[in-house]
Amino acid sequence: MFDTCADPAALEGLSWFLCYLTSGKHMMFYWSFLIVLALLAVTAPVALGLGFAGALAARARAAPLRWVGKGYTAMVRGVPDIVFFLFVPVALDQGLEWLRHKWKCPDWDAPIRQGNDFLVCAQAKLPLSSSPQIWHDIYGFTLAVVAFAVVFGAFAANVLHGAMAAVPRAQLETAEAYGMTPRQVTRRILIPQMWAYALPGLSNLWMILIKATPLLFLLGVTDIVYWARELGATKSAIYDYPHPDWRVWYFLVLLAFYLGMTSLSERLFRHVSARLARGQATMAGEAMRKARA
């Protein structure tokens, strides 16, 4: 990074630390914080969308659709989310490879599962074994995002389903009395009203999502936990910057990062919930009305 860092052995004190903290590996460590933020930025909207679809499906009038919705919302109750984090990427990977195998190698007659092996033809591998490393990384990250989105979508479906049930029945009946169709009632009355009831659950879910991001490490993504272990481990004299076991300090940094993230979000949600309570027929809305009067 800096010219003075060319010979780390000659450095001392503060300049040693400055060079140490700007080494190439550390840059990758800082970069991996962005991976966490990227995961949050992608997962949150996708999970919200999945949850929304799941909650609407659970209220649907067509029975098969309703069963799908109810099954999806019930999925995460009773089973630890980590089971899904381990299961979904592998299952998805094998499912995709199997589909490609059917499509690309139709004349392959050996069974896919031979004893303890899962064998598909070379053209069906995902990504192809000849593709550069970056595609393997992107594929792994995508599978992780899908796993997170599926699990948190089910959580969100629970929250939104509860919120839809919490909208006062009288509001919907009034809309029906005005001659609105079920679809109009859902779109004009139910969905706009529901957010105020959903917000506490959703904010709680966001916190759980933030606190679930280190599990990326379990899915084989080189995330902040991976780098903290890698960089903190004892470095002997053959390394440029030898140091004893510093993993505890690296994990303290991660702890501080997560504490900062959760308290920042908490403050943000307090603002949003105040905004949503305005004009609502709830205790918070009533308190706001009285304060202004």
């Binding site: 280190p214 936990v225 505890v248 994990f251 991660l254 702890l255 997560y258 959760t262 308290s263």
Partner: peptide, 22 residues
Amino acid sequence: IYIFRGSPLFIQFFLAYEALVL
């Protein structure tokens, strides 16, 4: 309460283990 509720359990496990190893 703030520290244990505000940070991931996964990180707490790692931190505790690395501290105990020392």
